[in-house]
Write a protein that binds this DNA or RNA. Sequence first.
DNA 1: CGGCAGATACGCT
DNA 2: GCGTATCTGCCGT
Length: 190
Amino acid sequence: MNQFPDFLDQPAVSVAPLLLGCYIEREINGVKLSGRIVETEAYDQSDAASHSNRGKTISNEVMFGGSGYAYVYFTYGMHYCFNVSTGAVGHGAGVLIRALEPLEGLEVMRINRLGQSGRDLTNGPAKLCKAFQIDKSLKGHDLRTAPFRLTKGKLRPGELIVQTTRVGISQAVDEPWRFYIRDNRYVSKL
DNA sequence: CGGCAGATACGCT
DNA sequence: GCGTATCTGCCGT
């Protein structure tokens, strides 16, 4: 039985690489879906690109509510994305999960993704939310508990972490706060 | 395969 | 009003 990570109470930039190799487990109508995290990005309140940068509001309060909760947000009028909140209560930070390697429940994911398959199921933050049926009903969900959990995992022998700049932002574009597993085919973008 | 435009709703200015 | 932590389809090579 995999355990909940014990390293979430530190800066998001430190947590982001540690989440690589960990697992996301989701249960829908008795069917289990799971995936392995292969790409992350850190967002902190001191960072102009972070939703938490302008202080706590109704929409971003999960980022300020302590570590281990799901901060799910809606963007571009049609997509959800998902972060793991990090750090102490009162500090607004989180790690965006950008890509997964699908493990269990591929059939359900394929239906959720309208017939897409292979690496296209979960190689992007909004794609993996659609595949795993993550929407605003899970905003604030405790990731220690079913039906949506985060569990500890490791890198495989030979896997290396690449650190680079983040994707899709227009502020703080030079900060190297994106991490992914090198040569993993499920990473969203090289 | 790479580049670009369009979709579409919400919060903040 | 405007910009957005994105994806998809359509176009050209």
